[in-house]
Simulated scan of single mutants.
Amino acid sequence: MLTATRRFEFSAAHRYWRDDWSQAENQRVFGKCISPYGHGHNYTLDVTITGTLDPRTGMVMNMTELKALVNEVLEEFDHKHLNEDTPYFKDQLPTTENLVRVLWQLIAAHLPTVARLAHLRIYEQPDLWADYDGAEETTFARAYSFAAAHRLHAPALSAEENRAVYGKCNNPNGHGHNYTLEVSVTGPHDPATGMVIDLEAMDRSVRAVLDQLDFCHLDHEVAAFADKPSTAENIVVYLWDELAPRFEGRLSHLKLWETRKNVFTYTGPHSV
């Protein structure tokens, strides 16, 4: 399958609030997002289409045409208050998950027959986004960071073999990284909150695991790496094993950035 993606940007305000909930309940679930005046974001929207390659033009769809089509849809949202200025959030909250589904319906309806909408990703913030592909479930993702030191050294290898395999990463005194972990959770969105998962609960669950690694030397201070090398592959599998039970089957994948050039994705043992 061939796909093409174009990125768009728009700015909007929104507010999370349910009239049928008390102030305390709204505060507990939505936190600072309940401000009566709303708050705002610079949204980034990645639109991915698929279709048959036109042998005459070499395109699935002219990107200029896609740009005009999507911008026409986004005009209804750009520099608007989503609750007050659009008709889509009178009966549902303008969460990231709900917004991506509304945009899917509008963009899909405008596409010509030669192309099909394959995927949308909307970033509310650089470390918070939602994915949607038209299915019943939505994916919500958030990025977290932690800093740790480690040394790549395999007990099963000789000193010479370790130096040959790991190079500078086998430095006896270790080295370190600012790691970024992307955590993606997939499931039906709660019609009451418009969310796939309670964000504050998600943050607590992830930080409870990452805080055990943050500002540590993995080989010396984390038992799981006492007898195996602390490669990014082993780290992301370890993080899956720690996090998956906390998300009760909704964890869809983890992506671990060791550096800007080294990225590792794991979807659990079922995918092996």
Results as ranks from 00 to 15, higher is better:
residue 112 P to K: 02
residue 204 R to K: 14
residue 75 E to V: 14
residue 265 T to K: 10
residue 67 K to L: 14
residue 57 T to L: 06
residue 31 G to A: 05
residue 271 S to H: 14
residue 139 T to S: 13
residue 119 H to N: 11
residue 271 S to N: 15
residue 112 P to I: 00
residue 73 V to S: 06
residue 5 T to E: 08
residue 7 R to F: 10
residue 65 E to I: 09
residue 57 T to D: 05
residue 102 V to E: 09
residue 6 R to G: 12
residue 41 H to E: 05
residue 71 N to A: 10
residue 6 R to M: 12
residue 42 N to H: 09
residue 120 L to T: 05
residue 216 C to M: 12
residue 250 R to S: 03
residue 119 H to Q: 14
residue 81 H to A: 03
residue 185 V to T: 00
residue 91 D to T: 09
residue 214 D to H: 05
residue 9 E to K: 15
residue 112 P to G: 02
residue 161 E to G: 07
residue 215 F to Q: 13
residue 231 T to Y: 05
residue 196 V to N: 04
residue 90 K to W: 09
residue 5 T to H: 08
residue 259 T to F: 02
residue 212 Q to W: 01
residue 164 A to T: 15
residue 171 N to G: 13
residue 3 T to H: 14
residue 248 E to T: 08
residue 103 L to G: 04
residue 7 R to E: 13
residue 157 L to I: 09
residue 241 D to H: 09
residue 225 F to Y: 03
residue 69 L to A: 08
residue 209 V to Q: 01
residue 220 H to S: 10
residue 240 W to L: 01
residue 18 R to I: 02
residue 31 G to C: 14
residue 144 Y to M: 01
residue 52 T to Y: 13
residue 26 N to F: 01
residue 150 H to S: 08
residue 21 W to S: 11
residue 142 R to H: 03
residue 95 T to Y: 05
residue 206 V to R: 00
